[in-house]
Design a protein around this nucleic acid. Sequence first.
DNA 1: ACATTATACATAATAATCTTATGTATATTT
DNA 2: AAATATACATAAGATTATTATGTATAATGT
Lengths: 119, 119
Amino acid sequence: MYICVMYSSELIKGTLKTIVLKLLSETKQMYGYEITQKVKELTDSKIVITEGALYPLLHQLEAEGIVTTETVNIGKRIRKYYSLTQTGNERAKEKIYEFTDFINTMNILLDLKPNVRYV
Amino acid sequence: MYICVMYSSELIKGTLKTIVLKLLSETKQMYGYEITQKVKELTDSKIVITEGALYPLLHQLEAEGIVTTETVNIGKRIRKYYSLTQTGNERAKEKIYEFTDFINTMNILLDLKPNVRYV
DNA sequence: ACATTATACATAATAATCTTATGTATATTT
DNA sequence: AAATATACATAAGATTATTATGTATAATGT
């Protein structure tokens, strides 16, 4: 899923969907490459999404009706924009909430404080 | 790795090693079944470790010199105690620190505040 | 006394998810 | 002109967990 400079890959597995849904819930429309760059930028290259992980996920999300796509021509290149459906918006909220709760549980397990609030 | 009542399994993948190392760094000696019960108790059954995930991991950790074992007879049953080696202790600290840092990165990505401190 | 649940280990088949590699092609920067 | 960045896609292989199965003893409930 990622080439991780900083984190062992095993640690980050399973968070890609949450990350993508979160970004799409903030920025109505994004294309794949843009998502990889945004994550890299926001995490200071600590999390780098690979295409081999991202594109199959995006296709899966589309097949599940969580996102819709719009293909745009940029010069002679194509760009495929993804945006959340209504179902996708709900899914995004659920996923983010779930992750927040998970962090809190892990904080208890690992004695880390304080807990994260869902804002 | 887990039967998760609460979290989607994908989310939790990769945290088992961190959890096990943390528990072992606090409670010098633990046996497999004990670890499963402790995690269940501490997380209110939100994370339930399955044996199919735990035992192979413990064997792997032993093969890597991160833990040593001591088999004890309890009546006619056996109990296999695991404890961290010196290398294991360092590994545990690393893993916990890595996870803390990971949570902070994810908080930035997901706009969750405040960040977790490593204590 | 008998059945069920809990304790306690272990492994193998399958599934899910990610990494790595590969492929194609255009645009921009050095 | 070459190298890097943009932009998509997929397939082989690795990793890690789930589910199922197996063995066996101890304790509890009825």
